[in-house]
């Protein structure tokens, strides 16, 4: 089986490192090649890592509430960099405060993300989606 590559990171000024370590472990265990750029990652760092490693997916975490500001324009930047078709996943506490998730999801889907996960999603959910989206 082909080993697909994922770029994993926590975007913006966010320093939540625990979940990042767990996702790295879980995706690696599930057979993916994980390029973990860690916390405090800029949009440019995600894109650079994706190009360099020919990744299939960029997986963005945001736990601190600024996700909406930090993720805006990522799809457009991917297109400008020639990886416009790459899968974009995002998950975590994406907005400030407790908001209805379906509204949050809609906002991020409109921003060009392929999958949006609410707080508390287990890695297995994303792994199943990855397998579906990548035809594994």
């Amino acid at each position: 089986m082909e080993r697909k590559t994922l770029v994993l990171g926590v975007i913006g000024a966010d320093v939540h490192a625990v979940g990042n370590r767990i996702l790295d472990y879980a995706f690696t265990q599930a057979g993916f090649k994980v390029i973990n750029i860690g916390v405090l990652a800029s949009q440019e760092e995600f894109i650079r890592a994706a190009i360099e490693t020919a990744a299939s997916v960029i997986m963005v975490s945001s736990l601190y509430g600024h996700g909406e500001l930090d993720c805006r324009g990522l799809r457009e930047k991917c297109q400008e960099s020639g990886i416009g078709d790459i899968l974009l996943y995002v998950g975590g506490n994406l907005v400030v405060g407790k908001q209805e998730f379906n509204k949050v999801e809609k906002r991020f889907l409109e921003m060009g993300f392929n999958r949006v996960y609410p707080p508390g999603t287990m890695p297995e959910v994303a792994i199943e989606d990855l397998r579906k989206d990548l035809g594994l």
Binding site: A13, Y64, G65, H66, V96, G97
Partner: peptide, 22 residues
């Protein structure tokens, strides 16, 4: 120390009527 981005957050918060900063 990204005070310019914080300023954007203040301005956007004023616009959308909810806090865009944590």
């Amino acid at each position: 120390n990204r005070y310019a981005e914080a300023q954007t957050g203040i301005d956007e918060s004023r616009m959308v009527g909810r806090s865009m900063l944590n």
